[in-house]
Amino acid sequence: MIDGHYLLRRIGYSGAAFVICVTLTFFILHLMPGDYITNYLLSISNYLPQEAVDQFYQQYGLDRPLWEQYVIYVCNILQGHWGYSYQYGLPVFPMIMQKLTWSLVILLPAVLLGIAIGIVLGAWSGWKSGGKKDLALFNFMIVFRAIPEFWWAIMAVWVFAFSLQWFPLGGFTSISVLSSGLNPWDVLYHAILPICLLTSFIVAGNYYVMRNSMIAVIGEDYITTARAKGLDERAVLWRHALKNALLPMVTMTTFQVAGIIMGSVFIETVFSWPGIGLLTTDALRMRDLPILEGIFLLDALMTIGAMLAADILASHLDPRIRMGDQ
């Protein structure tokens, strides 16, 4: 029973945001001094015959008017043709997808665990707000969040990998097993520390939002109404408080999940994990613009998609949005 107008408006916004992102990347690419020829082909070979250059321009539609190129560019983006890396001369899209797979190995478990633990801890802390345990946890989280992620990662490497030698110093596989292909257990062994770190960052972020949300909800009149009915505290928490407190969490969590692609940059840099993050730093050092744009586009697409999903989810949870009369 989702209100059609509301959904349409949201989809319209997402589309507009997508167009802006694509346009931004298009103009950055085209305003750039030089083009594929000067930046990429000439770096491979010193001499190019003029016919080859012309053919290239024709092939890639660079001889057409700008607006036509723009349309072609958008079509290409939709088909996954995201340009070529300066450094490797390879198409950007498959490169990013391959790295994304590696990133997801640590991101997926971290995001799922992080959201679940963050919500549970935050809800509990908010429910008990003002108590000793709540304050202890709250203060701990403030301090935890204030310390930069990459610093936590470096300290974790120092303590757990270097001093205690429980985990490897970095990378995704041991060289000794590489000859016989990738061993899932070996990868997992390498992934545990980064996953734990990422999870705790996500927990800390969600904890704070969930706690505030819960504190706001327990001050509401309908919580008193629920108690006045004779419900026990557990039922008040589960049936009445939790669902209301989760409403603002949906949007916040989406923001965090979308942002975590970039959040993993630090973790991947510290642990030399071959994902999007490492690709980003690498491209940043080499000023490999097409790759950076590809990553930006990917992140934008994921964020836009995630926010649309969050809107739909929120309207499922909150009847006031669902009916379209907020």
């Binding site: 509401e220 009149d221 309908y222 008193t224 109404t225 629920a226 006045a228 009915k229 049936r239 009445h240 669902k243 209301n244 409403l247 949870l317 909150d318 009847p319 006031r320």
Partner: peptide
């Protein structure tokens, strides 16, 4: 049993 004041806020909006 209780009939609380301010009917706009004493009912749970999501149930």
């Amino acid at each position: 049993a209780m009939i609380s004041q301010n009917s706009a806020s004493v009912l749970n909006p999501v149930l």
